[in-house]
């Protein structure tokens, strides 16, 4: 059952070109996809191609010079700005890309606790910290005291305790070592198995493939194809699009080639 549907979404920005003129630049065009409960959809593609903006569009946190068209539906209901605000952090949770999303003046333990909606906050937070190998003293640290990897684990924990039905993870794994990556991904898997929908935005196909059910290949502001994860194998011959194949073959464990030139 699909929880979240993106229908013909376009996002464009107003920018100053040179001096005084403003022009509109489209960064996402005519994108359609859906998130199904119990499934992980990985969105892979070049960094800076607008993948994060897709997440921001769904959450309604685009910068104010952005314009959108098209529809996003949650549970069949069209998402309005107001509805997005209500659902954000409750039904739809974000695992963001950077530490700057944490409140710099709040101890991280407390930040994780504020996201807990059901049950005892303290317990849930302790449990999730244990799960991510965060020592007890980390609870009382401020974001600036965390190493990159620790910060990321905090961000993952925050979404994990919120009990949301849709989790959008924006590059949740770079900067983590493989053990922690595997853990984080396993947790996303468990999350999906509980009946939630997970959107995993990543440029790291390899780790995404470990858990994803489907993979959406993102290029030039839109989704080229949505392929089942098992199609990424061998020489990538079961992939439809030229770019998807090139992306797959460019991995260091495959051919490590760069035949696709933009």
């Amino acid at each position: 059952m699909s929880i979240l549907e993106v229908d013909n979404l376009s996002v464009s920005f107003k920018q100053y070109t040179s001096g005084l003129r403003q022009h509109t630049q489209e960064v996402i065009s005519n994108l359609s996809m859906e998130l199904v409960s119990g499934e992980i959809l990985a969105v892979v593609g070049a960094s800076g191609s607008g993948k994060s903006l897709l997440a921001h569009a769904i959450l309604g946190i685009l910068p104010s010079n952005a314009q959108t068209s098209g529809k996003i539906r949650f549970d069949g209901e069209v998402l309005t700005t107001k509805l997005q605000e209500q659902l954000r952090g409750k039904e739809i949770a974000l695992v963001p890309q950077s530490v700057s999303f944490l409140d710099p003046l709040m101890r991280v333990g407390a930040q994780v606790r504020t996201s807990v909606r059901k049950g005892k906050a303290k317990e849930a937070q302790k449990k999730v910290f244990e799960r991510y190998h965060l020592k007890e003293e980390v609870e009382n640290m401020y974001p600036f005291q965390l190493s990159g990897g620790m910060a990321r684990r905090i961000l993952v924990s925050t979404a994990m305790v919120s009990g949301a039905r849709v989790i959008i993870a924006d590059e949740p794994t770079p900067g983590l070592d493989s053990v922690v990556i595997k853990e984080a991904l396993t947790n996303f898997r468990e999350f999906a198995d509980q009946g939630c929908a997970v959107m995993l935005i990543s440029h790291d196909i390899e780790s995404a493939l470990q858990v994803a059910d489907k993979v959406a290949v993102f290029y030039g502001g839109t989704v080229l194809e949505i392929a089942p994860a098992e199609n990424f194998e061998g020489n990538g011959d079961r992939l439809q699009h030229h770019y998807s194949k090139a992306l797959w073959r460019a991995l260091p464990q495959n051919d490590f080639t760069c035949e696709f030139k933009n």
Binding site: V44, S47, H203, W248, A250
Partner: peptide, 17 residues
């Protein structure tokens, strides 16, 4: 230092080559 960690595979391969 994690020079290509944030980049997609194609760019990574090209830079490293």
């Amino acid at each position: 230092d994690e020079m290509t960690t944030m980049l997609d595979a194609i760019t990574q391969a090209q830079i490293w080559h």
